[in-house]
Amino acid sequence: MPDGTRALSRVVLETRDVGKQYKLDGVEVNALRGVSIAIRAGEMVTIMGPSGSGKSTLMHIVGLLDQPTTGEVILEGDDVSGLSPNQLSELRNKHIGFVFQSFNLLARTTAQVNVELPLVYAGISGSERSRRAKEALERVALGDRLSHFSSQLSGGQQQRVAIARALVNNPSIVLADEPTGNLDSRSGIEVMAILQELNDQGITVILVTHDDRVARHAQRIIHVFDGHVQSEEIVLNRILAGTALATLPAEEVAG
């Protein structure tokens, strides 16, 4: 979306020369080497690259799940490098929602309770929590699956529960690492439609994928290769999942 609004909006997340080294049996692996990216509020950005290029490592760092070896991560204008694990937990809880390839829902736990989880750690009271969890599940069209256990849901439904969990605490950023990787194409399109819808509502979405088709749901693509940013690309003919969904044969639209 190469228009003026993006240029005007503030930078919500930024990495400055971020490097990440792993030591494996004395051998140093440079998963990231000098990555500088800036994500603006309300953007939908894809981080794309081949397997092993460092996408997940970068996502963990911008998601405050991990600390860079070198460089800085700036969230909402504050440098977060050097914060304690507990401080990072609080920031994640407040600002970031995660969607993982493998859903990562709690087993033997209902959709409702799964979605409430971030609110529990935000210290929000029971009734408020259940109201907001219901609301979030309704937003992903699962208002009728509140008390289903995660194991009783299809993959697509599980991923939508995960999205509801990611957005329930009104984060500024939703990070999605291969969110369609474990889904059939229809469920994948549904998930992408929801992510685009969230983005339309103002939430910053960072997508991580190796799949060009998935990548082009975003407005911008950051290509990473071998631990560094290779190029950036503005998506010219963005795929709109909502439109794609409408053209699919009318089927029981999962709900």
């Binding site: 694990p85 750690y121 969990r165």
Partner: peptide, 16 residues
């Protein structure tokens, strides 16, 4: 372990 990871990812602190 995975449950603990999920809880931490969504904001659980050490104490929790």
């Amino acid at each position: 372990t995975r449950e603990i990871g999920i809880r931490k990812a969504v904001g659980a602190r050490t104490y929790d």
